[in-house]
Design a protein around this nucleic acid. Structure first.
Lengths: 169, 169
DNA sequence: TCCATATTGTAAGTATGCTGTCAATCGAGA
DNA sequence: TCTCGATTGACAGCATACTTACAATATGGA
């Protein structure tokens, strides 16, 4: 623990959790893009597609809560997925404000085909660690994300996905 | 390990290393910004300032290697730091292509003042873990970033910082 | 019913982070 | 010395990620 009078050096930057998480995010995205380059799909777009397949007819606001992405950002993500014809937006019968999201056949096919590449990418991220260390890191990471859920600007609300099925509560 | 025929569920997304690192990056940035909001400085701008203070007269390309940020992106970061008068760009006497970067008095003062907030932010990121787990996670994270250095689009090249002092060898 | 409040999608503005490309410049070898 | 290839900073373009704001719409309570 550095004292107040220590000059901050590059070493303090390199060992800061925030810096390390930034680097790992860069590395994880680079590996994902490399493994999936045949499909022209980003990690965010992939997560969105999986979520829409799991929750057909979800709206954009609920989708943002389910994958913990910013609501504003998600607008353009959805636009791009629609432009590539992987999803469809249909007006909600009950609420004129919302548009409901569905996978197209093309989107479902893409999702089926890309899975091996995505799994290869996820495996590669931790590959260079010893198997026991992989398990330890993944467990601590999962725990830390969960403990800090409320600290992020867009906390994960997985249960929100159920609401579009009709509010019985 | 899911088999080829398993449907991918949200759970597979939530437990993927790439997703977890993205979440932690979001969380770490949110905590940094919150702790440092009095200073109007982003994590990237902070790392740049520290690096320029450690290596006065460094050029933009070498700076990008030292903090592993993209060279194109760094251009606008430097612009913003210069607009806020935290750094100065001076033409290099030996090389008409490069501009050398220096902290201003104002930048040095800011760096001095902001350190407690930055340290508080970094501590907060891991705070909710048990002390032993913090050490374990940090060690594994450091190891993993190092092992995957070449996988990122902009590998860290800390030793590049020395080159601007004159090539003796 | 009417109205204050909330929600939804969208947009504008800022900041990373990456892909390219380009002109100016540099450096090394023929 | 001349020229070719590399380097440098700048720019354009795309994709996240956040902020605020806004209009349309919904909802709950007086």
């Amino acid at each position: 623990m550095p004292s107040k009078s220590d000059p901050i050096t590059m070493d303090a930057v390199y060992t800061a959790p925030g810096y390390l998480f930034r680097r790992m995010q860069q590395i994880a995205v680079a590996i994902f893009v490399e493994e999936c380059k045949a499909y022209d799909l980003t990690p965010v777009q992939y997560a969105s597609l999986v979520s829409i397949r799991t929750h057909p007819g979800i709206d954009a606001t609920r989708l943002s809560a389910v994958i913990a992405f910013d609501r504003s950002t998600l607008g353009s993500v959805i636009e791009r997925l629609e432009a590539k014809a992987y999803i469809e937006r249909k007006p909600s019968p009950g609420d004129k404000r919302t548009k409901l999201l569905y996978l197209t056949k093309s989107g479902a096919a893409l999702l089926r085909d890309i899975i091996p590449s995505v799994e290869r990418a996820q495996a590669r991220i931790l590959q260079r660690l010893k198997p026991a260390d992989r398990k330890t890191l993944l467990a601590l990471l999962t725990q830390l994300v969960d403990l800090n859920n409320e600290a992020s600007r867009v906390p994960l609300r997985a249960e929100d996905a159920l609401e579009h099925l009709g509010r019985s509560g």
